[in-house]
Design a protein around this nucleic acid. Structure first.
Lengths: 220, 220
DNA sequence: AAATGGGTTTAGATAAATCTAAATTAAATA
DNA sequence: TATTTAATTTAGATTTATCTAAACCCATTT
């Protein structure tokens, strides 16, 4: 099991998150995601290609291969276990864990992570509702759909939120939407794609399309 | 509170440990400690002097000033809290925690460390018996003496071991010497400075001077 | 098919941390 | 005090990760 630099790991993780399903990732997308410059991305892609972690032909975009995916899942496992630890044991609030885990995830001692996993009782999801890969890199494919796709008047349980900036988390807290919240979409407006939702017996209220796109529910 | 690179932190910590009491640290000592080259040490000393963390005149050795000491105590606090966490919560064995903590200590998020401290119940010493600085950088001055200084036939309690290589810890484990062990020096030999010690009602056995110099007991 | 323009890559520079080899200083010795 | 030697510093090179600016590719549009 080779070790990768913090910078390499950040690139690998970002590619994993961006490549979703079948597509490839472009230089600009990645530069934007990592708040770096396209030239830096190209340099790193050459390096990761040389390390055989991704498929990359100049001008054609890139995609993690099997080895790269395995590495990415290891990083995500560390990140999500630390998030769980921070929320569950250290009582960090939901919107603070991501940032701290960004640093902790780069400490890559397998025994540490496996023992942490055991200490935490082998949690299946992190505080945002995202599945945690196991020690072998296996991850539950979460059958989740965005509430923008949810039929009207159907109660569903919030299982995760995708954007993990503290801004969105602050907003969700204000609206009292969290993992496990039961909600129902009452109305959608074509004009701005905003929607009215209801939580339990509380009055109906409005959320923007931008926010709705980041809220997911379990679809089993 | 400024941030320092992993490399800077390793230098600061090493100086702190080497400078003991009143003396200064030399370039070679530090290079040896950090397994680096004297030229690299000189470069870093210029940098740390520019950051006003130490007193340094070319060819005269160096010593942390107040700010440098404060930074060092922060690093040591993080290191020892993680060691405690690893031993107490993750059930790492005594001789494994140091190495893992070497990585974790560089994650320098004050809130993380203060919450970890609280979660652990504000431990006073790490698994090696060394005191943990509090959130303000206060550290108990441990009144400990080396067993080489201990008068004969005086029972004392092992409170810490200084060298934290896995080699010494393996040897201590074999000899059944650990923090809290009650022992008594029965005989010292001038020739090789080896000594015979007794633990509880077990038969007397010999330890080398090299080992003895790393075993400390509380002297209150 | 030629031109345009956005996305991408290359070229060359910079900063951090390290190294080797050479020069320098200070302390010990003759 | 002059000399030797060991420790230390300087000079210059290397690696990693980044940047800016210039060059390049290619798909879409005239």
């Amino acid at each position: 099991m080779l070790n990768y630099s913090t910078s390499e790991e950040n690139y690998i993780k970002a590619i994993f998150h961006l490549q979703k399903q079948d597509g490839t990732v472009t230089t600009n997308e990645l530069a934007n995601e990592l708040k770096t410059k396209p030239a830096s991305v190209t340099d790193m892609m050459k390096k990761l290609k040389a390390k055989k972690l991704l498929n990359y032909q100049p001008y054609k975009g890139f995609r993690l291969n099997n080895d790269g995916t395995r590495v990415a899942l290891g990083i995500i496992r560390r990140h999500r276990l630390w998030e769980y630890f921070l929320a569950e044991k250290l009582k960090f609030s939901w919107d603070e864990v991501h940032e701290v885990a960004e640093d902790l995830e780069h400490v890559s001692n397998k025994k540490l992570i496996d023992k942490l996993d055991e200490f935490l009782g082998f949690p299946r999801t992190d505080p945002h509702g995202d599945p945690i890969p196991d020690a072998n890199g296996k991850i539950e494919i979460s059958r989740k759909i965005c509430i923008t796709e949810l039929p009207l008047h159907t109660v569903a349980i919030v299982s995760s939120v995708s954007d993990q900036s503290s801004e969105i988390l602050e907003l969700l807290e204000h609206k009292k939407i969290t993992i496990g919240t039961k909600l129902e979409v009452k109305k959608k407006f074509d004009f701005d794609k905003s929607m009215e939702i209801r939580i339990g017996r509380h009055p109906v209220f409005t959320i923007s399309d931008r926010l709705a796109q980041n809220i997911f529910v379990q679809s089993n």
